[in-house]
Structure formats: C-alpha cells, structure tokens
Design a protein around this nucleic acid. Structure first.
Length: 354
DNA sequence: AAAGCGGGGAT
DNA sequence: ATCCCAGCTTT
C-alpha cells in the first residue's frame, strides 16, 4: 500500500477540480485535445478554444480531414503554432493508421506527433485508466521536494530518477486501479499547479506534508534545484541616434528576426559613428558617445553603444531598408523595441533631444 | 526582466 | 541517443 498515492487520490477527490469540460469524458480525442492545449496555456484561456474545436471538429476524423488553414485559424491566439500543425498531423495519422481510433496504450500514443512520454501517459490514464506515470514540470517540482531530490530535473540523470520514482509510486494494481489512476494523475497535476507552486508553496494544507523531505528540512525554496544558467553569448553593436530638426532617423527591422517589423535605430558594427553615418548618406556635424547599456534576450545579451549625431548634409541612400524621420514628440506611440524606446525617451526627458 | 516549459529538431 | 532551442507565459 502506498501512502503517497493514497493521499494524493483522497485529496484530489475532495479538493480537486471535477467540472472542467474535458473531465466529463473518457474520449481520448477530447482528452488529447485538452492536454495539447493545456501544455502551453492556462485553463481559463483554453476552455473557449476547446469548445470551439469540438463544435467545428466533433471527431478526430473531422479534424484530420479539415484543411490545415482551418485548424490554424481556430488555433489563432493560443500561440505555439507548431503544436497546432502537430495536432493536425497527429489527427491525420490516427485517421489513416489507426482507423480514426486513438491507439490503445501510452506507448503507441507516444509515437504520434506532438505527444511525448508524459502527455501520452496522461491521455492513457484519463481515457483508459492505464497505469502509466506522467512527469511534467509540475510533477518534477512535487517530486524534487517530496523526495528531496537535488539537481536540475531537466538533466538526464535526475530525470531518470524521477521517472523511476514515478513508476514506483503509482497507485497499486487492483480492481479500482483505473479510477485510482485517473484521480492520482489529476491530483499530481492539481497539487503542482495549486499548492506546490514554484514561488510560494502552501505546505500547511498539503496532503503529503507529513512525508515531504523539503518541508521537514525547510528547503521548499531551494528545491527543485534551478537549472544552471548557462552563460549567454554576448554581442555588441553601435547604434545611431541621428537627429535632424528635432526628428530621429529610424529603420524598419527585417522580419523575421530580432525585433522583426519594429522601427529601430540604425546599427553599425565598429566604433566609427561618422563613417557609419556616411554609408547612410548622412554627414555628421557632431557625434558624441552616449553611455553603453545592455539588453538581455533569450539566447544572448546585447551591449548597445549608442552615439548621438547631429546631421549635417543629407543625401539618404535608398538601400531597400524602409526609413522614417520620427519627431521626438511622437516617441510615446511608436512601435520601437523596449530598450530603444527607453534610450530615446531618456534623452528626450533630459532635454538632450530637441 | 528573468525563469519555466514538453516536444521537436539538430548534432 | 543526447542536448538545445522557440516562443510564449508567469512571477
């Protein structure tokens, strides 16, 4: 008998959610649809999308045989559009390879596009009551704390330990195993999402507080071990604040790309601002270095070295990059990258921009 | 502004 | 077979 799973199940049945639209069915199609949507979006946002999908595509075969653009249009607003394409590809494979019926177990479900081991297990548990463990981000956090597991859970060795624990602590087989699996799987998700949260775990009312290593050692806030923040590569760029009669020269950023489609300051690779101006067709009457500042992106850190240039003679080159002169007073409403807007507004407020 | 996130794709 | 990322959210 497993104390851990018993407590999770009991807690879920008393305090968990039971009325979400995808909880009143064992239809693997509906459960799969909800799991894919919930991977990236919170419940309140998902519900209207989920219901629109079911109205438009009552069965997985309807979804499989719809044009991709219809699927994408219904998905619009949920984000992560590659997952919508996987959703459609998955439906088509279930239609053609499985005769429109979802595969019968988690192992086969995990072969489908957009579905990994954890999502496959969740579908199999909710749809079939299969005794197969999930291990998503919420569950990793619960396990790291409850079992006192150190190390980055996204790393191979730690993740393997957690999968082993997930197998070990499944509700035991038996006549009630299918119902137990449904409650247990939902309970683990609910616990991680509502009580055992990242920043502020509510340990006082946790159903497994009696056995929790992290709580006993007061290490809830240290576990799970944060992933090692890899040193992000750093780059530098010169940026030109070219001013002429109270207006600033902006260029449209190419799309796709960093800041794609936004208006930004001209950039140049070296540290010769006057030469960079000349390539644009601007003669610099005066050029002054402004303080360097940095901006962090997901994959690198950018050190920006801005120059303030008073334009003299002008003969702007047309090299295909759209350019505009922005009156300094119209900074507020302009579609500029946040750090660029901040730089320009700072200059404007200090009266360094006319 | 920084950290988190499941699966796909790259290596 | 293993590592890293894209693209979006929450804190």
């Amino acid at each position: 008998m497993d104390d851990f799973s018993d407590r999770i199940i009991d807690w879920q049945r008393r305090h968990g959610r039971h009325t979400l639209p995808w909880q009143n069915t064992h239809d693997p199609y509906r459960i799969w649809l909800s799991e894919i949507m919930l991977q990236q979006t919170q419940v309140a946002t998902v519900i209207p999308y989920y219901e629109r999908f079911l109205q438009r595509f009552p069965t997985i075969v309807d979804l499989a045989r719809a044009p991709e653009e219809d699927v994408m249009a219904l998905w619009a607003g949920l984000g992560y559009y590659s997952r919508a394409r996987n959703l459609h590809a998955c439906a088509r494979r279930v239609d053609t390879e499985w005769n429109g019926r979802f595969p019968p177990d988690a192992a086969a479900i995990a072969e489908l596009p957009g579905i990994g081991r954890s999502t496959a297990a969740a579908i199999a548990a909710f749809a079939y009551g299969e005794r197969s463990p999930i291990l998503d981000g919420n569950v990793k956090r619960v396990f790291a704390r409850y079992f006192g597991i150190e190390g980055d859970p996204t790393k191979r060795p730690v993740e393997m330990r957690m999968w082993a624990l997930a197998e070990t602590h499944l509700p035991p087989p038996g006549p009630d195993a299918a119902d137990a699996m449904r409650s247990y799987t939902q309970g683990l998700m609910d616990l991680g999402a509502t009580l055992c949260t990242r920043g502020n775990p509510d340990c006082g009312v946790c159903p497994v507080r009696a056995g929790c290593v992290a709580l006993r050692e007061a290490r809830q806030h240290e576990l799970p071990t944060p992933r090692e923040r890899k040193a992000v590569p750093e780059r530098r760029t010169g940026m030109l604040v070219i001013e002429k009669a109270g207006e600033i020269l902006l260029q449209r950023r190419p799309s796709p790309g960093i800041w794609g489609g936004l208006w930004s300051l001209p950039e140049f690779p070296g540290d010769d601002a006057a030469a960079a101006c000349l390539t644009l067709g601007v003669t610099a009457a005066a050029a002054a270095r402004l303080p360097t500042f940095s901006h962090g992106f997901t994959h690198f850190k950018l050190h920006i070295e801005p120059w303030h240039v008073q334009a003299g003679a002008l003969a702007l080159r047309d090299d295909g990059v759209p350019q505009i002169w922005l009156p300094a007073g119209e900074l507020e409403g302009a579609a500029l990258p946040a750090p660029v807007k901040k730089l320009l507004q700072g200059l404007f407020r200090r009266g360094e921009l006319l």
